[in-house]
């Protein structure tokens, strides 16, 4: 095999491997997004992972405020204008398997495109 042939082989192998890598892995580099909806409409989105984040958000729902706590890689509802507090009791979520829903206040907090859960639905 001539030197030129070897170069062609190496280049083709590199292209092939890059193609395979991008096909199988690059599309999965999304780290997840926190989505907040009010009455079916997306009002805010945040990256799931943000180093050192520890902040509270007040979301205006249909009956009042739903207070959301954002950390690096997880989110929960700490208070909401609702009688049953099912949203608060849901606790922290860190993947797309389970949303937090405050039905009376029509607020939903969910995570999309997370890669860390071993289930798709719940």
């Amino acid at each position: 095999m001539k030197r030129g042939d070897i170069i062609i082989v190496l280049v083709l192998l590199a292209i092939g491997l890059a193609g395979i890598y991008s096909y199988f892995f690059a599309s999965g580099d999304s780290q997840g997004t926190i989505v907040i909806q009010v009455d079916g409409v997306v009002t805010k989105t945040y990256p799931l992972y943000q180093e050192g984040r520890d902040e509270f958000l007040d979301i205006q729902g249909v009956n009042g405020i739903t207070r959301v706590h954002l950390q690096d890689g997880r989110v929960c509802v700490v208070e909401s204008a609702c009688p049953d507090k099912i949203c608060v009791e849901t606790g922290w979520i860190s993947n797309s398997a389970r949303p937090i829903a405050c039905l009376p206040n029509r607020v939903i907090v969910k995570i999309i495109d997370s890669k860390d859960g071993d289930i798709d639905l719940r």
Binding site: K2, I15, G19
Partner: peptide, 24 residues
């Protein structure tokens, strides 16, 4: 033989890549 082999390799890589782009 080397050229035949190379041609097959090129064909293979192109097929794989075009297959992937069709998936995309």
């Amino acid at each position: 033989k080397t050229r035949i082999w190379l041609t097959l390799l090129v064909f293979g890589v192109v097929t794989v890549l075009s297959g992937c782009s069709a998936c995309e």
